[in-house]
């Protein structure tokens, strides 16, 4: 059978820095896969390779039977079927919420205005911000902005949704709203690939959990096993620090020593390479 996502021998380097060192894994249709791991482990880069926002150095990425890494692929056509939600929301600041959701429907899918507005309103209602259609992104809270971003991706009727740490830039009390929308989406049968630090979400919603560290998959499997009873010491240490940070010991894991500090700017590798700055978000204006 064809998988929703199939990744084979994926390598990605930024200059001399090798971020992904041979990744193999698959996501089946209807599955929710969560990718967890420390900062700089390459999980965001992996996700961005799935819709070619990052060009893989070598290896194969196949989404719904179409090989994205083939040189003749129409990447714009494939991306229409892949929704992406970013850590920094990346709503279009110059457009209203409604226009944010209709512009790609009209310009890319060629939908009529009335139809695009109808689809937009349906999806805004679905994520619980139907009353904010006339607002501009800057007038919304982070949680509302992220839900609008989810609605924007859903309006394109994607077959696969990618989430790149969707709750990492949110105030703690706003995380729940976004996770609830994502859980609803999972229950509706959406195929989802989620990079997250929310272990409770991974444990309860994911069908499959992938733990990455140092550019490789360290272990993967059912959430009960990977999160509940991890086999590898690196996974154990990581989970201990995330689930119970107050009891972490300084220096027990040198490479993730300042994990909490990194978390604020997660999505960027620990080593900065010129020209590589995918962490910049709409908040920078």
């Amino acid at each position: 059978m064809t998988h929703a996502v199939e990744i084979r021998e994926l390598h990605k380097s930024f200059g001399p820095l090798e971020v992904l060192k041979g990744i193999d894994f698959t996501v089946d249709t209807g599955q929710v896969v969560c990718v967890i791991g420390p900062s700089g482990s390459g999980k965001s880069t992996l996700l961005r390779c799935v819709n070619l926002l990052e060009e893989p150095t070598s290896g194969k990425v196949v989404v719904n039977g179409i090989e994205l890494t083939h040189r003749d692929v129409d990447i714009d056509a494939v991306r229409r079927t892949i929704g992406m939600v970013f850590q920094q929301f990346n709503l279009f600041q110059h457009l209203s919420v409604l226009e944010n959701i209709t512009i790609a429907q009209r310009r890319v899918l060629g939908r009529r205005k009335s139809e695009a507005v109808k689809v937009a309103m349906q999806n805004l209602e679905k994520v619980g911000v139907g009353d904010k259609a006339r607002f501009y992104p800057i007038q919304l809270s982070g949680g509302q902005q992220q839900r609008v971003a989810i609605a924007r991706a859903l309006a394109m009727d994607p077959a696969l949704m990618l989430f790149d740490e969707p709750t990492s830039a949110l105030d703690p009390e706003l995380v729940g709203d976004v996770l609830a929308v994502m859980r609803q989406l999972a229950d509706d049968g959406m195929t989802m690939l989620v990079v997250t630090h929310e272990m409770s979400f991974a444990r309860e919603v994911a069908d499959h959990v992938v733990f990455m560290d140092g550019g490789v998959i360290v272990e993967e499997g059912a959430p009960a096993r990977v999160i509940g009873a991890p086999e590898h010491s690196r996974t154990q240490t990581f989970l201990a620090r995330v689930l119970d940070p107050t009891h972490a010991k300084v220096g027990e894991v040198p490479e993730v020593d300042d994990y909490q500090a990194h978390r604020a700017i997660d999505g960027q590798p620990t080593v900065q390479v010129p020209g590589f700055d995918h962490g910049s978000g709409s908040g920078a204006i």
């Binding site: 714009d76 970013f86 709503l91 279009f92 790609a104 991706a153 394109m156 700055d277 978000g281 709409s282």
Partner: peptide, 12 residues
């Protein structure tokens, strides 16, 4: 911000 272009490209 670069994210604006990325969001637009990710929508196809």
């Amino acid at each position: 911000p670069k994210g604006q272009l990325e969001a637009a490209r990710s929508l196809g």
